[in-house]
Amino acid sequence: MNWRNLLPLLHKEMVLELRQRYALSGIVLYVVSMVFVVYVASVKPTPPVWNTLFWLIILFASINAVVKSFVRESGARQLYYYQLADPAALVLAKVLYNALLLLALGGLATVAFTLVADSPVQRWPLFAGTLALGSVSFSIAFTFISAIASKADQSATLVAILSFPVVLPVLLTLMRLSAACFTPAGMPVDAWPDVRNLLAVDAILIALVFVLFPYIWRD
């Protein structure tokens, strides 16, 4: 794989995002309005409910943020990219870009959610790590599935039904980890098994993305 193309490709994704700023603003507004809906619906959620609502917001925001990564550009233009750069580098750039985007969205959701519904989180470093791990895992799974779905005839619903079952183990583990962040700082917490599982799942998924992507992009 040609790694030199990676940074220009990442740069291209960012430029494209800034050029179509309405999409980014749309996602940000989506997160803020979901947080507001939660605020209106339940004024003070208990920690387990907080956990569930928070990760649901993240899940739906992520799917909406990532789903466009392959439909944003026309098929002809994508074919042009595949000739200029290594397809593997292209998909890796998209995964990295989406991970950064999701991390930013996660941070935004955390801040907004903490403002309206007092966060029960006690261990912020662990929570930030959970958010980062979650962004990476969601980014890999959703980017790959949106690549598959973009080839189908109606792709919008397909992304959701194809990716929810795939990310469910990741989501459950993330919720366990973030629930561990609610315990007071004095108590010992063994977060390593969950972190290790998430890293293992990420490693499997990213390896599969590299192996399988060549079969997707060729038409």
Binding site: A141, F144, I145, I148, K151, A152, L162, P165, V166, V167, L168, P169, L172, T173, R176, P193, D194, N197, A200, V201, I204, L205, L208, L212, Y215, I216
Partner: peptide, 26 residues
């Protein structure tokens, strides 16, 4: 057929944590 095959492989890989790792954690 080609894209379904790709999804099948991807989904099976995510089935392994589903059936073997997660049940041990809960």
């Amino acid at each position: 057929a080609r894209l379904a095959a790709v999804y099948n492989i991807f989904a099976f890989a995510s089935l392994i944590p589903l059936l073997y790792i997660l049940p041990r954690m809960f």
